[in-house]
Amino acid sequence: MYQAAKEDGRQLLAGRSSMVSAVFAGDEKIADARDLALSFLADLPTVHGLPVSERVTDTVELVVSELVTNARKHAPGPYVLGLEACDGAVEVSVWDSQPTLPTIQAPDPHRIGRHGLEIVTTLCRSFEIHREPVGKRIKAAVALSDDWGTGIGGPQPM
């Protein structure tokens, strides 16, 4: 795993941006990606003065787990996990080399498996899939505020 951290001028709740990313070559475990996310979230209150609730921590950990699992399962080669706190949210980004875009299936309580993206879109403030020159990037934003509501279709921020 190769890891980098970055500070830039983007607006954040505390007026600063925080970002971390890592390249996973395939021999690391999905737990390594979750550990990176938990470490990133643990630093937000102390380094940047941003409150991170248990709900945010649990949600980001689940989103990272689902997106990284998909990258490992469906894409050849390495993948890149990025986490950034900006605009009142934690944005989780996963790039992989597979050019085929995933489809989010309609809810089906009788279907076994393939509920990951359905769960992610329900829990996140926004969700995007972008085709890249090589592969694709999936981004999902988890609101830092606990009064935001739930999911893309949930209540809007107050």
Rank of each mutant, 00 (worst) to 15 (best):
C124G: 13
V20T: 13
E7A: 12
L83S: 05
L41P: 05
V134M: 13
K29G: 05
T46S: 13
E61T: 07
K136G: 04
S93N: 02
E84H: 04
L62C: 12
A143W: 13
C86I: 12
D147G: 06
A71G: 00
K136Y: 02
G154Q: 08
Y2N: 14
G88E: 05
E132T: 02
M158P: 13
E132H: 09
G154T: 05
V60E: 01
L83I: 01
P51D: 09
E28D: 06
G82L: 13
S39F: 05
P107M: 12
L50N: 01
S93D: 04
G88D: 07
S145C: 10
L117C: 08
D43L: 13
E128V: 11
V47G: 03
K29V: 04
A42D: 13
T103M: 11
V142Q: 12
T46R: 15
K29I: 00
A33K: 02
R125S: 10
R10G: 09
G116R: 00
A5M: 10
K136H: 04
G26P: 06
S53W: 12
F40N: 02
V60R: 07
R34D: 04
G9V: 14
A143I: 05
H110M: 03
G153T: 10
Q105W: 08
H110G: 04
R34G: 02
E84P: 09
A4C: 10
L67V: 02
T103A: 15
A25W: 12
E61Q: 05
A25V: 10
V94W: 01
D108W: 08
R72N: 04
S18Y: 10
Y79N: 06
A140N: 01
R125M: 12
V56N: 01
V23M: 15
D96Q: 03
A106I: 02
